[in-house]
Design a protein around this nucleic acid. Structure first.
Length: 271
DNA sequence: CTGAGATCCTGGGGGC
DNA sequence: TGCCCCCAGGATCTCA
């Protein structure tokens, strides 16, 4: 499941690989994946465009096009954006959209479960207006985070996963940040003390930055734009480690369900 | 506002 | 060994 660090890694790889390239043709083999503005054809609108830049917003990979339009890609659970060099032979498995460039290379969107989407947006479209703060931006200050939790009765882990509050945190890094901060995932957000809120603010940023440095986490089948796995799965403290000893206190990691999500944590040191 | 439940999908894990 | 069942999971929508 690509979260902020994985999407950041993919976007950086794509920035190197496709910036400046011009679209020669587009093949869509699963129509629901590729969404165009009303009345437009995805293939036709994209053909002839040049990739001006590649960035990230929350869990979206955003390709900025020379016309001012954008292609916002959400990978959901099993989506992949794969760059294939000129002369590539095999289509990447489960490819639903392939963008071919004039130099013979291609950018393929592949997705086993078909949950991911590529959305072509008109220039200036405020598509991400209701998205939350970027947790690695200057705007995500300790003070801002402390006050965000005021009056919020929802479990803190559910809060961290709400993309309209903080953009980009998913299940893996919510679990890891809560462990690092020593906070129980089910704790109502407003009941968390200010010192603990500050610890959590720092933990969210630390975990995300360390995961980016490791090029993301590959627990299931995440790979970046070059098809490479990440390395952060070797640094996980709790996620997916049911029954294994807590790295801090040695008690076995437990798994509970919170907001319909698997949640891994330590009863010994998360209060 | 808040949470619960359904929906979308398919590979793969568990049970027998 | 083989087959069938069922589940995970992010975002979004409906309903209470």
């Amino acid at each position: 499941m690509p979260e902020l660090p994985e999407v950041e890694t993919i976007a950086r790889g794509l920035a190197n690989a496709v910036t400046g390239k011009t679209v020669a043709s587009v093949a869509v083999t699963m129509a629901k994946i590729a969404i165009a503005p009303a009345g437009e054809s995805f293939q036709e609108a994209l053909t002839g465009e040049t990739i001006a830049a590649v960035g990230r917003r929350g869990k979206y990979v955003v390709l900025e096009l020379a016309s001012g339009r954008r292609l916002a890609v959400h990978l959901r659970m099993t989506g992949r954006l794969i760059v294939q060099a000129p002369g590539y032979s095999e289509p990447y498995p489960y490819t639903h959209v392939r963008v071919s460039f004039t130099d013979g290379s291609a950018l393929s969107f592949a997705d086993v479960r078909q949950f991911g989407r590529m959305r072509l947006l008109p220039a200036g479209d405020p598509w991400d207006a209701d998205g939350g703060v970027e947790p690695l931006s200057k705007g995500f200050t300790s003070e801002a985070f402390v006050s965000m939790l005021d009056g919020r009765r929802t479990p803190i882990k559910t809060f961290l996963l709400d993309q309209s509050r903080i953009a980009g945190v998913g299940n893996i890094y919510a679990c890891e940040a809560l462990w690092e901060a020593g906070i129980r995932p089910s704790r109502p957000a407003h009941k968390i003390t200010k010192p603990a809120r500050r610890r959590l603010h720092g933990a969210v940023r630390d975990v995300l930055q360390r995961a980016i440095a490791a090029r993301g986490t590959s627990v299931d089948d995440y790979v970046d734009a070059e098809g490479l796995r990440g390395g952060y799965q070797n640094q996980l403290a709790v996620y997916g480690r049911l029954g294994e000893p807590c790295p801090r206190c040695g008690k076995p990691i437990v798994r509970t369900v919170l907001g319909q999500r698997g949640t891994w944590w330590c009863r010994g040191c998360q209060k």
